[in-house]
Design a protein around this nucleic acid. Structure first.
Length: 511
RNA sequence: GACCCUGUAGCUCAGGGGUAGAGCACCUGACUUUUAAUCAGGGGGUCGCAGGUUCGAUUCCUGCCAGGGUCACCA
């Protein structure tokens, strides 16, 4: 017997007394003929509609409304009860009175915080001045069996909101995002902004006639970025496939195919570390437009971000982490090697791998063994220069070793026509005049293959079909990538990528 | 992957080698315009998991698990 007991799943929640009590309430409601999970409710008003509609005009006749939402607070006072219900738009106070409701008033005691109800009533203003729905009839729309955290909101004299017992445990918030969304209204706001940002970008591109496309997530050869991929397996074909690390090479094939502007909002996957700037799956935007170069793309990015910020906030300025950031056009444009000169006091152009390594070490940086020239420059840049780039700054003209898919600079030896946009030290955008000379592309791939042979697991692999596409011929093309998650972080003042991804990757909980 | 911090009630947290604490939530009672409602009473915990030291561990030690942070790799 003892062993039997011990071998039963002893889920702590199963023996939770609050859960048990709610289950009893639910069974009681069913016994007296009430369906605690009915099929529909015809809402006429949202919480915010009621408040905005009745705030200014005090209606002579009380107006009838049908509202529905989740019960967030209860104030029971014997023969009268107040509660706040919450719908997608906000909260509205509901008033119940024994005189009006009779027997159904007594059933209120079988309702709990977390239940969802529908209310038919008229709107009035209480003595304390709060716009409230006076219930004439109500019905339960969903009985909640698991209690949710109950933060309480207090308003001080100056109208500031103080939240008591806020649901703050980050692990629980990310794992149980549905609870987080219910009890932390700011979280809903972030994801609404995220949706607005994405739809703004989509409209911006669509209205210019560029085509939204979908390219493979499962790829036999991964490419378009330097990163380690996730590997999966297709059973019927019995081949390994890679989850895409970027969609660049497919989008360029579409430019070869004759589309003159294509873009994709793409979930990419990189099998690397996670921290507040990296989630293993993330969203990137890439766009390619035929007959354009990177100067044109710079103007596109300036205008896109400027109009996006203006659309969201009605101004060109935002505040991130108490720093004001101004998206006024044009953004600063700085050549990469000029920035090196400014921040290191030395011209790194034409330096050998060995010389760069020595400079890096003097700056107290550490490098992996066999670090390539590209890696060393990248390291020096991201450690020394990048943190200083707070206001929107285009860094232009990268060394060729760092950019195997970008076209050679039209006038400067050893450089490519590439820019990255930095804001608040974040890399927001990456763009080039796209390399379309198949002979040059092949030799760049071959150089990547050499790096790979030397042990660089992130170096690119040769994609013969992509080279074939370039041989068919791609027009001059400007290409751009934007990290959507980081852009959302910047525009919503969030410090961690997990706060702008609804379901961030977490280790499974130990069962 | 390395280091630091954290894990106690549904939530937010305090405590500490000898039967586990608060506020809110929950239950009972009072209260027909309250709003962090109030007042009176009450229930609720293998103190993340496993092992060790000890007469005795939730507390001390070790390992593990999970989370957060810093660093490394990357966007």
């Amino acid at each position: 017997m003892y062993f039997l007991m011990r071998s039963l799943p002893m889920d702590i929640n199963e023996i939770n007394d609050q859960k048990a009590r709610r289950k009893e309430e639910l069974e009681f409601l069913e016994k007296i003929g009430i369906n605690p999970y009915p099929y529909e409710f015809n809402k006429t008003h949202s919480a915010i509609e009621i408040i905005s509609q009745f705030r200014d005009e005090e209606p002579e006749k009380f107006s009838k409304v049908f509202v529905a939402g989740r019960i967030m607070t209860f104030r029971r006072m014997g023969k009268a009860t107040f509660c706040d219900i919450q719908d997608e738009t906000g909260r509205i106070q509901i008033y119940f009175r024994k005189n009006d409701l009779g027997d159904s008033y007594d059933l209120l005691k079988y309702l709990d915080i977390g239940d969802i109800i529908g209310v038919e009533g008229f709107v009035f203003r209480t003595r304390m001045g709060e716009i409230t729905v006076h219930t004439q009839r109500y019905e339960i729309l969903c009985k909640s069996l698991t209690p949710i955290p109950v933060p309480k909101v207090e308003e001080d004299e100056s109208g500031n909101k103080i939240v008591h017992d806020q649901f703050t445990d980050k692990e629980q918030r990310y794992r149980k995002r549905y609870v987080d969304l219910i009890v932390n209204p700011d979280v809903r706001e972030i994801f609404r902004k995220r949706a607005k940002i994405i739809s703004f970008i989509r409209n911006y591109f669509d209205s210019r006639g560029w085509l939204e496309v979908e390219t493979p997530i499962l790829q036999p050869i991964y490419g378009g970025a330097t990163a380690r991929p996730f590997i999966t397996h297709h059973n019927a074909l019995d081949i390994d496939l890679y989850l895409r690390i970027a969609d660049e090479l497919y989008l360029k094939r579409l430019i070869v195919g004759g589309f003159e502007g294509v873009y994709e909002i793409s979930k990419n996957f990189r099998n690397e570390g996670m921290d507040k700037m990296h989630n293993p799956e993330f969203t990137a935007l890439e766009i390619y437009v035929a007959y354009k170069d990177y100067f044109w793309v710079m103007e596109l990015v300036e205008d896109l971000l400027n109009s996006l910020v203006t659309y969201l906030y009605g101004t060109e300025k935002i505040v991130y982490d108490n720093v004001e950031i101004d998206f006024k056009k044009p953004f600063a444009r700085r050549k990469m090697f000029d920035l090196f000169k400014e921040y290191i006091g030395e011209d790194l152009k034409n330096k050998s791998e060995q010389e760069l390594l020595e400079i890096g070490k003097r700056l107290e940086l550490e490098f992996p063994e066999n670090a390539s020239k590209a890696k060393i420059l990248d390291e020096i840049f991201s450690e020394i220069v990048q943190p200083n780039l707070i206001q929107p700054t285009f860094v232009i003209d990268y060394p060729i070793e760092m950019s195997p898919l970008a076209k050679k600079h039209r006038s400067e030896e050893g450089l490519v026509e590439r820019f990255e946009l930095f804001v608040n030290g974040f890399e927001i955008a990456n763009a080039f005049s796209e390399l379309n000379d198949p002979r040059d592309q092949r030799s760049r791939f071959e150089e990547q293959a050499r790096l790979r042979a030397k042990g660089d697991e992130e170096a690119m692999v040769i994609d013969e079909d992509f080279l074939n596409a370039l041989e068919v011929g791609m027009p001059p093309t400007g290409g751009l990538g934007i990290g959507i998650d980081r852009l959302v972080m910047l525009l919503t003042n969030q410090k961690s990528i997990r706060d702008v991804i609804l379901f961030p990757q977490m280790k499974p909980e130990n069962q």
